[in-house]
C-alpha cells in the first residue's frame, strides 16, 4: 500500500470516528448534564481605579484539589476587583515553594501572599522578600509562625481550635467513639485537627491513615476499620471528597457510624441537605484567598493592617449543619463555598 493510499485510509478512519462521536453526542441525556446546570454568577463588586500592581500568591497546594481551587477563586475575585495582576503558583515540596518565593522576588512583585505549611523551610525565603521591601501576608497555614517571621497579617483557621470545636460538637450529639481519617500522613494541619479533636472529645479517638490519591483504597480501608472496630459511631474526615467516600464505607460495613467532615464542597453541601453527612466545619477557603490578596491592596494603597498586625484574622471554624445549609447551598452551586 503506497503512502497516499495509507493517508487516505487514515483520514477516512479519523472522519468515521469523528462522525461516530458526533452521532453519539446526539444521544443526549434527558436529565443532568451541562444543559441542566445553572450558570454560576460571578461575584463582582465594582473595580478599583488604583494603579495596577502585581501580587504573587504562593501555596503548598498539590494540583487538582477542590479546597485549594476555592482559595484561588477567592484570590482571583479580589484581584479582579482591585486591579491586580495575580501570579499564582504552588508546590507541596517546601524547598520548591521557597524557590517560588525567590521567583516572585526576582519578578519584583508588589506583594506576596504565602502559606507556611513548613515554616522553617520558608524562613530564609520570606526574610529575603521582606529585605527586598516586599510586603508579605500569610494565610491558611502558619498560624504559629506568622508573627515570628514578621508577616504583616494572617488569614486562616486555627486548626487546633477547629479540632477542639469539632470535639465539642461531637460531645453535644452524643458520639462515643470517633475515627479521624487522615488522607496525608505527616501533614501538620491535618494532624493538628485530629489532635485538637482529642483534646475536647470525651469519647475515644483513633486516627486512620489512608492514601488520599486512591479513592477505592480510601473506601476499602475505612470499611476495614469499621469492621475491625464496631464501636466506632462517628467518622471524622479532613476533606470534603473523603466524607462522601466514608458514607459509602459505612454502608459497605453495615456500620452504625455517622459521618462529619472538615471542609466543604458542592457535593458535601448536598450530602448535608440529604442527611448522609451530619455537618461540616468550613474554614471558608474562598474568604482566605480573597482577604489575603485584598489585604495587600489595602496595605499598598491605604496602609491598612487587618488584625492590627497583632492578631490573626480567623476565617473559621464555621459549622454548616442541616439547619443553615440552605443559605450556603446556592453559593456552593456557584463554586465559591
Amino acid at each position: 500500500m503506497d503512502r497516499k493510499t495509507r493517508t487516505r485510509k487514515a483520514t477516512a478512519i479519523a472522519a468515521a470516528c469523528a462522525a461516530g462521536v458526533l452521532l453519539a453526542a446526539g444521544c443526549s441525556s434527558s436529565s443532568g448534564g451541562k444543559k441542566a446546570q445553572t450558570a454560576a454568577n460571578n461575584i463582582s463588586a465594582g473595580k478599583a481605579t488604583t494603579a495596577r500592581i502585581k501580587i504573587a500568591m504562593i501555596t503548598h497546594a498539590a494540583p487538582g484539589d477542590t479546597f485549594w481551587d476555592l482559595i484561588r477563586k477567592g484570590a482571583q475575585a479580589a484581584a479582579a476587583k482591585d486591579n491586580i495582576n495575580l501570579v499564582y503558583s504552588s508546590d507541596p515540596n517546601a524547598a520548591n515553594q521557597a524557590n517560588l518565593v525567590q521567583n516572585a522576588i526576582d519578578q519584583k512583585v508588589d506583594g506576596i501572599a504565602i502559606t507556611l505549611a513548613k515554616p522553617d523551610a520558608m524562613k530564609a525565603a520570606v526574610a529575603k522578600a521582606e529585605a527586598a521591601g516586599i510586603p508579605v501576608v500569610g494565610f491558611n497555614a502558619g498560624l504559629s509562625a506568622w508573627k515570628s517571621q514578621k508577616l504583616l497579617e494572617y488569614f486562616g483557621q486555627d486548626e487546633d481550635i477547629a479540632g477542639q470545636a469539632f470535639g465539642t460538637k461531637l460531645n453535644s450529639i452524643g458520639a462515643k467513639s470517633a475515627l479521624c481519617v487522615v488522607q496525608e500522613q505527616g501533614n501538620v494541619a491535618l494532624e493538628t485537627r485530629c489532635a485538637g479533636l482529642k483534646k475536647t472529645f470525651k469519647g475515644k479517638v483513633q486516627n486512620l491513615y489512608v492514601n488520599g490519591t486512591d479513592m477505592p483504597s480510601v473506601k476499602s480501608t475505612i470499611t476495614a476499620k469499621l469492621r475491625q472496630d464496631s464501636s466506632i459511631d462517628e467518622i471524622v474526615t479532613l476533606g470534603g471528597p473523603f466524607a462522601l467516600t466514608a458514607v459509602q464505607s459505612v454502608s459497605d460495613a453495615n456500620s452504625k457510624a455517622k459521618v462529619a467532615t472538615f471542609d466543604l464542597n458542592q457535593d458535601v453541601v448536598k450530602a448535608i441537605q440529604a442527611g448522609t453527612v451530619q455537618f461540616a466545619v468550613d474554614q471558608q477557603p474562598y474568604l482566605q484567598g480573597y482577604l489575603a490578596v485584598d489585604s495587600l491592596w489595602l496595605y499598598k494603597f491605604n496602609g491598612n493592617f487587618s488584625g492590627g498586625s497583632a492578631q490573626p484574622v480567623l476565617t473559621g471554624p464555621a459549622f454548616v449543619t442541616k439547619d443553615n445549609v440552605a443559605t450556603i447551598a446556592k453559593f456552593a452551586a456557584n463554586g465559591t463555598r
Binding site: S31, G32, G33, G64, D65, T66, D69, P241, D267
Partner: peptide, 26 residues
C-alpha cells in the same frame, strides 16, 4: 497527563473535580 487532567478539567468545569453525573441517562 497529570497536567492535562488538571488543566482540561479546570478549563471545562471551572473546578478541579468533575460534576456529579449520577442523574444522567445510562
Amino acid at each position: 497527563l497529570q497536567g492535562l487532567n488538571l488543566a482540561v478539567t479546570k478549563l471545562l468545569t471551572g473546578n478541579v473535580a468533575t460534576d456529579d453525573i449520577s442523574n444522567m441517562d445510562g
